[in-house]
Design a protein around this nucleic acid. Structure first.
Lengths: 204, 204
DNA sequence: ACCTGAACACCGTTCAAGT
DNA sequence: ACCTGAACACCGTTCAAGT
């Protein structure tokens, strides 16, 4: 047995993070595994399904202080495992969950696009939605979730544009300015979450 | 003079609406115009730019009860012109603007994806953002806008999944059920906007 | 079960050349 | 200015055949 489905998803995430969604082709994933393109179709029916599996992997582990779904204790092979802030079995807040989801999506190149495209209809991030719903109700959960998607996508697109601009003109790009822009994006996200939470409270 | 840049954008939007983003290739757009693929590069530097122009066209006219930017009075050739509700020169509310933006994106197949991908960094929908900011402030505007993006994308993805399911099994799909699902999505969107507006008010 | 090799019908983009 | 024709380096997916 040479490769498993998990190997394929892992390799695909490596290619995604290194080369972006645009260049994350079946052929490149196959090359990453040292295998012919056609071999992938033994593990996965098509590219769309592979993208959905990648999205699941990116988002996996976000909604879980204690009650995870199906992950073996030691084996977390995919993207960086994201811990919910203050995850000492303490009750995570809705804001924590949203931040963790955002961090997970921003942790892989084009991760927000992959998750937004693949997961919105097939659930995917639905364990997060369920956790949020328990804290703030169904409507609030959905609002927070969709805002988080939109903001992550926007932040990631901004990031790429900045990277592209830096490539074209490296004259006046400091690491400081980059970090500052990133901090602005983070702060903007937090303010949005604050607004939504205030709205949920005031309508309760 | 055979074709203008506007002709190319128009043709591309026709192909998009008919065949979806996945099949909206430069070669198909060229075929739609009865021209060789290479001819497009006389009007547009690359596909990414064409997508950005399409996004602008989809969103054009949304933020405009009176003060439009650059559209000649009679000529609106692109996608369906979207009027803001109660657009009798009356002051559009923030909710109206968000609904109009959503309607514009949902009006073209995969429109939300095109706008979200192409416009987030290059502004694009920024005239809408400016109009919203005047009504609810910068943070509120951004929150509403990103929520609207996320919700429209999710709604559109749902729609496609439903269409796909109907193709696979047309046995029990009523037009009623379809309309009902659509109405649910609309209502869910409105509740999200309500929450955000309440949050903006309560933090003011 | 897992993979190779070859093929099919496509892509975006470039570039010389025509009118 | 606008377009053609040909080419280059790619795609996703299928399918017979190997082990």
């Amino acid at each position: 047995m040479r490769n498993s489905r998990a190997d394929v998803v892992e390799a695909a995430l490596r290619v995604l993070d290194a080369h972006g969604l645009e260049n994350c082709s079946m052929r490149r994933v196959a090359a990453e595994l040292g295998v012919q393109p056609s071999a992938l179709y033994h593990h996965v029916p098509d590219k769309q399904t592979l993208l959905a599996l990648m999205a699941d992997e990116i988002v996996r582990g976000v909604a879980a202080p204690g009650a995870v779904r199906g992950s073996a204790p030691g084996a977390t092979p995919g993207a960086a495992p994201v811990a919910v802030r203050g995850s000492k079995a303490g009750p995570a807040t809705a804001a924590d969950l949203c931040r963790a989801l955002r961090t997970a999506m921003l942790g892989v190149r084009d991760g927000a696009d992959v998750v937004a495209t693949a997961s919105a209809f097939r659930l995917g991030a639905s364990s997060v939605e369920a956790a949020l719903a328990e804290l703030v109700g169904a409507d609030g959960a959905r609002t927070l979730l969709l805002y988080t998607f939109g903001q992550a996508q926007s932040a990631q697109t901004h990031r790429q544009a900045a990277a592209f601009a830096a490539l074209a003109d490296p004259s006046r790009v400091s690491a400081d300015a980059e970090a500052e822009a990133e901090a602005d994006l983070d702060a903007s996200f937090d303010r949005g979450v604050e607004i939504i939470l205030a709205g949920i409270d005031s309508l309760r």
